[in-house]
């Protein structure tokens, strides 16, 4: 029980939260994300890809809602490590999420490049949005700890 509580605390200590209230906060969010990605061992160009995706979702918050938060969370399992990015706002929601992920969408005054671009830079990408709770974008970038070991293991399993 005590161990569990401590693990929980550690989990919180690892994550970084950046309040997004104006465009200067995008600079902070990008720098924090890049620093965390490097600390976690992501090879180039991943820290830049992650920072670029974050820049887009954070700008969406500033432009369309005005305030929100970016949470950066390291995660790992047996053979992978990764970084999860959660962008949260309590705004009016995106009316048509499918459309927002199409390149030509400009439903809220944007030029419709941001979200589809961010999605292409990350490995996993999901949006939950409605008028009551606002919008949450969750995206992940991950790497196998040992790419070579993974390929060997896959090959052995297939043989």
């Amino acid at each position: 029980m005590e161990d569990e509580a401590r693990a929980g605390e550690q989990g919180r200590a690892d994550e970084v939260r950046v309040a997004i209230n104006d465009d200067a906060d995008l600079v902070t969010a990008r720098a924090e994300a890049r620093a965390m990605a490097q600390r976690l061992g992501f090879p180039r160009p991943d820290p830049t890809l992650i920072a670029t995706a974050i820049s887009e979702v954070a700008r969406n918050i500033v432009v369309h809602v005005g305030r929100g938060e970016i949470v950066l969370k390291p995660f790992e399992d047996a053979d992978r490590y990764g970084l999860e990015v959660i962008a949260i706002d309590k705004g009016p929601g995106i009316r048509d999420v499918e459309a927002a992920l199409r390149v030509d969408y400009s439903g809220r005054g944007g030029l419709g490049l941001g979200l589809p671009g961010a999605r292409r830079l990350m490995d996993e990408f999901e949006i939950a949005s409605d008028a009551d709770t606002g919008t949450t974008v969750k995206m992940k970038k991950w790497r196998f700890r040992d790419e070579l070991a993974r390929l060997r293991e896959e090959r052995r399993r297939r043989a």
């Binding site: 180039r44 160009p45 820290p47 830049t48 890809l49 670029t52 390149v103 490049l113 671009g117 292409r120 830079l121």
Partner: peptide, 10 residues
Amino acid sequence: DVAIAMVQFR
């Protein structure tokens, strides 16, 4: 790295 991101972003 920025060049790679820009291309992947299209």
